[in-house]
Design a binder for these strands. Structure first.
Lengths: 160, 160
DNA sequence: TTGAGAGTGGGAATCATTATCAATAAGGAG
DNA sequence: CTCCTTATTGATAATGATTCCCACTCTCAA
């Protein structure tokens, strides 16, 4: 993936402009990083990646852009309880192929994504969403399902 | 609920002592607050409540105690993505009567607990937990299920 | 090409949470 | 009950993530 901005971010231009925002080099770089990376990145991760492409971009811009993207519903902000937020493209989350839930280790903070068992879960969640939406008059846009516990490494250590 | 420390925290004494920790006035007060309050409290909320009972307790003690209680698996730390952690007694979470999931408004951060629809969800989640535990060799202790979206108030405002 | 104003970088400010440390108090031994 | 060890505490400093501020820069419609 040498240098340039992939087509991945092009689809955002319209969305940006539609709301009166401008597409800038930094924003493109940030979108590109989000597009070409698999994991849930922290703001700092993103900053580092963006820095490789466009060294003059600053941390503030990363935060500002992520906030903007959040507001535009283009990215989703996760919280695994380790004191820093993670970000992921909604496009990716909505994609059946990428949609996943999490196993979070409460000891070492390791996060495992899983996509197995998802089918049944998602089906039930959809049903629940409908019920909740109606009852609480709440427009549900996304969900988080996380299981907390001890990963194999930490479970072993605990026994010593 | 006038003044004194309810019986609620007594059951913890043994647990504390068993691990070589001491039961102190501050810790009792913190446990008592957690015991007698319904909502997910932030550290600061807890500090304020504790302050009413035992004004000389400091913030550090609250954080330290919550950390300890977390380690002892007596409380669970939640994260709703608003930059501050919330705490709730595990005892309460395990209690079928209290177990709930969350609706989180991404605009005003309001959190709605719901207990409806829980039955089916929990049943499926249990099944999933089993499968995941085995496959990933992960000891699951708790789960979080949160739906994110817009509450009625914010949805309305958005339309204006 | 140009001007209005959106967007920027970097450093200061804020906020929640942690670490430090001398002083205090819990609780077992005597 | 008193003493002594040492876990615990409160105040405050330190940290780390995130947000704010502001003079300068760049985008893009006209």
């Amino acid at each position: 993936m040498p240098g340039g901005f992939g087509k991945g971010s092009v689809w955002c231009h319209g969305r940006f402009r539609g709301y009166g925002y401008r597409m800038t080099v930094s924003r493109q770089a940030i979108l590109d990083v989000l597009n070409t990376t698999v994991k849930h990145l922290s703001a700092e991760d993103i900053y580092h990646e963006v820095h490789k492409i466009h060294p003059s971009s600053g941390m503030s811009t990363v935060y500002r852009t992520l906030e903007l993207l959040s507001r535009l519903k283009l990215v989703f902000k996760f919280d695994f309880g380790d004191g820093r937020a993670r970000y992921e493209l909604n496009k990716r989350l909505e994609n059946k192929e990428y949609h996943h839930h999490h196993l979070v280790c409460i000891n070492c903070q390791r996060v495992i994504d899983y996509t197995d068992f998802i089918e049944d879960e998602v089906e039930l969640l959809k049903k629940t969403e409908k019920g909740l939406s109606k009852k609480y008059n709440f427009k549900i846009m996304r969900h988080i399902l996380q299981f907390y516990g001890l990963c194999n490494r930490c479970e072993e250590k605990g026994k010593e």
